[in-house]
Amino acid sequence: MIGFIVRRIVQAIVVMLVVALISFTMFRFVGDPVNQMVGVETTPAERAALRDDLGLNDPVPVQFWRFVSDAAQGDFGVSYQFKRPVAELLAARMPATLELSFVSALFALLIGIPMGVYTGLKRDHWLSKLFLSVSLIGISLPTFLIGILLIFVFAVNLQWLPSFGRGQVVDLGFWTTGLLTVSGLKALILPSITLGLFQMTLIMRLVRAEMLEVLRSDYIRFARARGLRDRTINFGHALKNTLVPVITITGLQLGSVIAFAIITETVFQWPGMGLLFLQAVQNVDIPIMAAYLLMIAFLFVVINLLVDLLYVVVDPRIRLTGPAA
C-alpha cells in the first residue's frame, strides 16, 4: 500500500517536471522577457545589466533549476502587465474558480448519479427516456450557448438570478467565499449549471451504462436469489460496483472543469483564474501563463492521485494486487 503511494508520487513528480520544462521553454521562445520589462528609452547597457541581473546569461539547466525551485516555493515571478507577483494574483483569483468548479462538480454528481441509477433501473419508463433525450442536449450544446441561454431566461427575462459576477463575498483572510451570502449563492447558480451540465449528463450516462452492466451480472442474480431487498441490491450491491469507473471519470472531469472554466468565467464575467488567464494571453503575460499551466497540471496530478487512492477504498481487489505489480 505504501509502495503503491510512493510509486504514484514519483510518477507525479516526473509529470510535474515535464510540465515545468514546457512552461519554462515558453519564456525562452515567446519573445524576449527583457523587451517586455523595459521601456523604449532603455540603453543597451542597461538591458545587458538587467539580463545579467535576471540570470538570463546562465546556462539553460541552471536557469531551469532556478525556475523549478522557485516554482516549488510558490514564486512564479512577476506579472508583466500587473507588475505584481504572479502567485499573489493567482491566489486572489483561485477561490472564485475553485468554488465554481467544486459546486458544479457537486451539482453534476448529486444530480447525475441518481438520474443514472434511475434510468438504469427503470429502463423503459417514460421519465428515463426523457432524461436520456435531455441529456443529449446537455452533451451536444456548447457551454457558452448554454450559459447565454440561461442568462437570457433566468437573468434577463425572469430576472431571478444575476447574470454576472460573484455577488457579495466574505473575506476569510486566505480565502474569499461567495458561499456565505445570499447574493453570492445566487450568483453561483447559473455558472455552476453551465459548467456542470456536460459533466452531469456524462456521469448520468456512465452510471446508467454501468448499472445495466452490473445488474446483468451473476452476483446480482445471486443476490436476488438470496431474497435480499431490492433497495439493498440496487444501492448496496449494484451501485457500489459502478463506482470505480464513475470515480475515474469524475476525477478527470473535475480537473478539466477547473482548467476549462475559462469559457464559463468569460460568459458570466466570473472573477476567477480563467479570466486572468485570458487577459494574460491577450497581453503575452508569460509568467501568468506559465504559472497557470503548472498549477492546472498540479491539480490534475493531485486529483489523479486521490482517484487512485479512492479505488483502493472502493475495490478490495486493488488493495492486494496493487503493490505486487
Binding site: 452476483y219 450491491h237 460496483n241 475495490d315
Partner: peptide, 9 residues
C-alpha cells in the same frame, strides 16, 4: 467465481 459480490466480505 461470479456469484459473490467482489466488493463485500
Amino acid at each position: 467465481l461470479t456469484s459473490l459480490n467482489p466488493l463485500y466480505t
